[in-house]
Simulated scan of single mutants.
Amino acid sequence: MSQVEESIEVGVPVHTAYNQWTQFESFPEFMDGVDRIEQRTETLTHWVTSVNGVHREFDAEITEQIPDERVSWTTIAGEARQGGVVTFHRLDDDRTKVMLQMDFHPDNLTEKVGDKLGFVKRQTKGDLKRFKEFIEERGRATGEWRGAVT
Rank of each mutant, 00 (worst) to 15 (best):
W47H: 12
P67S: 02
F88Y: 08
E38R: 12
V34Q: 04
V54M: 11
R40N: 10
R56L: 14
H46D: 05
I66T: 15
A60W: 01
M31C: 07
E79L: 05
E29L: 13
R81H: 01
E29Q: 14
V48S: 13
G78Q: 03
V34C: 13
T87L: 02
E79H: 03
V34P: 01
Q65L: 02
G84I: 12
E42M: 10
W73P: 12
D35Y: 05
E38D: 13
V71H: 00
V86N: 10
G84F: 03
I37H: 10
R81Q: 11
F30D: 01
V51R: 02
G83V: 01
A80T: 13
R70V: 04
W73T: 03
V54R: 07
T43K: 14
F58K: 01
T87I: 04
R81N: 08
R81L: 12
Q39T: 15
D68A: 03
S50Q: 11
T87D: 07
I76Y: 06
S72Q: 11
A60M: 09
E64A: 15
I76G: 06
E79R: 01
M31T: 03
Q65P: 02
I37K: 14
T87E: 12
E38Q: 07
E64N: 11
H55P: 00
V54P: 00
V86Q: 11
D68G: 00
V48I: 06
S50R: 14
V34I: 15
A77G: 00
E29I: 03
V86S: 08
V86W: 03
G53Y: 06
S50L: 09
A80F: 15
V48T: 14
A77H: 05
D35T: 10
R40T: 08
I66Q: 08
A80P: 02
E69L: 11
E64I: 03
Q82K: 09
V51Y: 00
I66Y: 01
I76D: 06
I62L: 13
E42G: 15
D32V: 13
F58D: 10
V51H: 00
T74C: 05
E61R: 12
T43G: 10
A60C: 07
Q65H: 04
T43I: 14
T74I: 06
E61S: 07
D35R: 13
T63L: 04
Q39G: 07
I62S: 05
D35Q: 09
Q65M: 12
V71F: 01
R40K: 14
W47V: 05
I37C: 08
